[in-house]
Simulated assay, not measured.
Amino acid sequence: MIIRWLVLTLLLVIAPLRAAAQPVEVLWLGHSTTRLTSVSGKVILIDPFLTRNPVTPPEYRDLNAVGDVDLILVTHGHQDHVSDLLELSRLTGAKILANYEFARNLVALGLVDENSVISMNKGGAVEPLGRGVKIHMVHADHSSSLDYNILGIRSPDANASVRQGGGAGVPVGFVIEMENGFTIYHTGDTAVFGDMALIRELYAPDLALVCIGGFFTMGPTEAAYAVRELIKPKAVIPIHYGTFPVLNRTPAEMKDALGDTDIEMLDVVPGQAILFEGSSPVR
Rank of each mutant, 00 (worst) to 15 (best):
F216N: 13
R18M: 15
M120S: 15
E253D: 14
D195C: 11
N248K: 11
E114P: 00
V69C: 12
G30Y: 00
L73Y: 07
L106W: 11
I118H: 08
Y241C: 02
M178D: 00
L71D: 06
T9F: 15
E277R: 15
V69M: 06
G167K: 00
G30T: 03
G181S: 03
D157G: 08
T33C: 11
L198W: 13
I96N: 01
V66R: 07
G166N: 07
R90L: 00
V246S: 12
P54S: 04
N105S: 08
G67R: 04
T9C: 13
S83C: 12
L86D: 01
D189Q: 08
I14G: 04
Y100Q: 12
T56Y: 03
D195M: 15
K134Y: 05
L198V: 11
V82P: 01
L106A: 04
A168S: 12
G259N: 05
G165R: 00
A168G: 03
G165L: 04
G110Y: 01
T9A: 15
K42F: 03
L91H: 02
L129V: 03
L50A: 08
P220W: 02
F193W: 10
D256Q: 14
D70A: 10
F174M: 04
P238L: 07
A252G: 08
G152A: 07
P57Y: 11
D84E: 06
S143P: 00
